[in-house]
Simulated assay, not measured.
Amino acid sequence: MPEKDWERLGELSEGLKVGAVAASREGFGLIGALSEPPAGALLEKMKARRAQVYRAAAGSVTKVWEGPGWIQALDCNGAVGVAIGASLKPSGSGSDYHLLVSTDGGREWQPRGPVGAPSLGQVLAVNDQEVWVLGAWFLGRTADGGATWMELELEGERNPHTERLRRVEGGVALLGQGLSVSRDGGATWSQVDVGASRVVDVDGAFVAAVVQGQARVGERQGTEVRWLEPLPAGREPLRLVASDGVLRLLTRGADPSKGPEPVLHVSEDGGRSWSHHSLPLGPHVDLAGREWGLGVDIRGGMYGRMG
């Protein structure tokens, strides 16, 4: 692994398919995977799927939860882990969703009931009681640990493929064509235009965006954004972490026909210069804090720096 300190943590059982990865600043990570019969009709295989959650920490990987269906999305915030489990509706068309929550760094998980949504692609933990979800034409929030959910109103059509839920100081932001920020649980929103065609991530004062077709990192200064040194051409930004003076940006190749080709870009001088580290991993990679990261290669090998 070219980036220093990333190590091979283990290998998933043969045949497991990874659906989601999340890293925490607390030095642990989560992997959502599924198993299904190797042969048979697609519908029957989907009905037989088993979802699994693995916890990676301190050089070891442990299976911490298993149930029917598959893991649709994961998130970590401090010691809180959240997962959206999905299973095929009895009719065979569409999915049912349910919330899983861990409050001890991913070691133990509790089911928190169904999430009534037409589709779900992302989950975001503010804490173990306040959780947000994003799906096609759906933005929702629970403030009571999943007992009840409220659909939130915001201009535009929700799309988890082009929009991102992110924590910001004092609230939650929906990123896409700018930043939409709510500090009152989605009751009201303020719009922040950063002069980019698409905003992908935000961490404190820093944003990752696509500007005139180019992956860029910028620093918000009042209502303006100061764009830092350009990144290599042909990259799509995925995940930005700004911590203790270090910027870390995860990108993938912009040409989907060439595979994900993830690269980690690191700046220790406020974005004046960048080093670039190729990661021989598949599409499921995540970063957290100044040093943590977790990813899975196409053969099920797990790599990262955890614990």
Score class of each variant (00 low, 15 high):
residue 90 P to V: 10
residue 183 R to D: 09
residue 139 L to F: 11
residue 16 L to W: 10
residue 98 H to N: 07
residue 104 D to N: 14
residue 175 L to W: 07
residue 299 R to T: 10
residue 283 P to W: 09
residue 86 A to N: 02
residue 125 A to S: 14
residue 134 L to M: 13
residue 97 Y to L: 10
residue 278 S to L: 06
residue 71 I to H: 08
residue 262 P to R: 03
residue 260 P to T: 06
residue 169 E to N: 06
residue 225 V to E: 05
residue 233 A to F: 02
residue 123 V to T: 05
residue 282 G to T: 04
residue 156 G to L: 10
residue 50 R to F: 03
residue 227 W to S: 09
residue 236 E to C: 00
residue 244 D to R: 14
residue 157 E to S: 14
residue 3 E to A: 12
residue 304 G to M: 09
residue 169 E to R: 07
residue 14 E to D: 13
residue 250 L to R: 10
residue 173 A to M: 11
residue 92 G to I: 01
residue 228 L to W: 11
residue 271 G to A: 06
residue 25 R to Y: 03
residue 241 V to R: 15
residue 115 V to M: 13
residue 251 T to W: 05
residue 172 V to N: 10
residue 94 G to R: 06
residue 148 T to D: 03
residue 120 L to Q: 01
residue 53 V to S: 05
residue 173 A to G: 13
residue 298 I to P: 00
residue 195 G to N: 01
residue 272 R to K: 13
residue 186 G to E: 06
residue 58 A to I: 00
residue 198 R to N: 04
residue 149 W to V: 01
residue 120 L to M: 01
residue 84 I to Q: 02
residue 102 S to H: 07
residue 288 A to N: 14
residue 58 A to E: 12
residue 247 L to G: 08
residue 33 A to D: 08
residue 278 S to V: 07
residue 17 K to E: 00
residue 276 H to C: 03
residue 297 D to S: 06
residue 58 A to S: 14
residue 121 G to W: 10
residue 60 S to I: 02
residue 27 G to Q: 15
residue 107 R to I: 13
residue 229 E to W: 03
residue 279 L to S: 09
residue 202 V to Q: 09
residue 181 V to D: 11
residue 82 V to G: 06
residue 80 V to F: 07
residue 66 E to Q: 15
residue 174 L to V: 15
residue 265 H to V: 00
residue 227 W to I: 04
residue 33 A to C: 12
residue 99 L to P: 03
residue 250 L to Q: 01
residue 289 G to M: 09
residue 258 K to E: 12
residue 15 G to P: 00
residue 106 G to S: 11
residue 103 T to H: 02
residue 260 P to W: 04
residue 135 G to D: 05
residue 230 P to T: 07
residue 101 V to P: 10
residue 159 N to S: 13
residue 83 A to D: 08
residue 136 A to H: 08
residue 73 A to G: 10
residue 305 R to Y: 12
residue 243 S to F: 04
residue 227 W to K: 07
residue 79 A to E: 14
residue 286 D to F: 09
residue 296 V to C: 09
residue 4 K to M: 11
residue 220 R to K: 11
residue 187 A to C: 00
residue 139 L to S: 12
residue 231 L to I: 05
residue 215 A to F: 03
residue 265 H to G: 08
residue 4 K to F: 11
residue 197 S to N: 05
residue 219 E to Q: 15
residue 107 R to M: 12
residue 249 L to N: 01
residue 224 E to D: 14
residue 117 A to Q: 06
residue 288 A to E: 14
residue 48 A to L: 05
